[in-house]
Amino acid sequence: MNRVLPILTVVGLIIALWYAASVWLNAPWVYDQAARAGQSVSFSQMLPQTQNQSRPVLPPPHQVADALWQGLTGQAITSKRSLVYHGWVTLQSTLMGFVLGVVVGVGLAVSIVHVRAMDQSVMPWAVISQTIPIVALAPMIVVLSNSFWSGALPQATGLDSRAIAKAIISAYLSFFPVLVGMIKGLRSPDAMQIDLLSTYGASGPQTFWKLRLPASMPYFVASLKVAIAASLVGAIVGELPTGAIQGLGARMLIGSQFGEPLIMWSALFASAILAGGLILLVGVAERAIVRRTGSPA
C-alpha cells in the first residue's frame, strides 16, 4: 500500500497533464474548422471536440487506450492489424537478439579477462561499436543478411533474412552492457581470493568455475536488465529503416507515414508493455539467482 499510493499519484498526474496537453494541442484544429465554416466556438463547445478527433495531434489517454485495446483484442491475433501479431514478430527478434547478445557479450568478456591480447585489441572496438548510430548501420546489416541468409537456410530455420537482420541489430545493442558487466564481474575477486585458490594449487579452469564465474553473477543479472531493454530497442529500430511491414516498429512507422497517430501511439504503448513484461521476467530470474547465491538482499 505504501508503494502503490505514490505510483498512483504520479500516474494520475501524468494523465491529467496529458489531457490538458491534448486539449491545448488539438484545439487549433477545432478553431480552424470552425473558422472555415464561418462559425465561432466557445471554450465549452471546443473541449469535447478535442477528445475524439480521428487524427489528433496528441490523442488523449482514452483514445490511446481504446486503440490499444482494439489492437490487442479487436481481431484475430493472426491479423495484420493485431498488435499481438506485430508484438510477437518483434518479441521473436528481441529474444533472438538478446540470446545472441548475451552469448557474444559473455564470450568476449571471458576471453578479454583471460587473454591479454584480447583485452588490448577487442575492447577499444567494442567501445567504438557503440558510438556508431544504429540507424546508420541497420540498412547495411539488412542488405548483408539478405545476401548471406539465402538458399536453404531460410527454409531450414523458418526465419527470413529480415528476422536475422533484426536479431543481429538487436544483439549489436545488447551485447555491450553484458560485456561491460561481465568484465567487471569476472575481475571482481580480490587478490586475496585469487591467492587462496593458488594455495590449493587450483588450475585456471577451476579458478574460473569456482571463483570468477560465481563472483560475476550479481554483475551479470544487473547487465541483463539493461540488455533486454536494449534488445527490444534494437529490434524496433531494425524494423524502421528496412521497409518492414511486420513488427511494432513497422507499425509505428506506418502510423507516422500515413498520419495515423492512434496507430503510432498504440504501437508505442504495446512496445512499452512488452518492455515492462520482459524486464519483469529478468527481475524474476535475478531474484532466483540472487537467492541461490545466498546474498542477504
Binding site: M192, Q193, L196, P214, R292, T293, G294, S295
Partner: peptide
C-alpha cells in the same frame, strides 16, 4: 588470511 574471505554464494 587476515580477512576470512568466505565466498558469499
Amino acid at each position: 588470511f587476515q580477512a576470512a574471505g568466505l565466498y558469499p554464494w
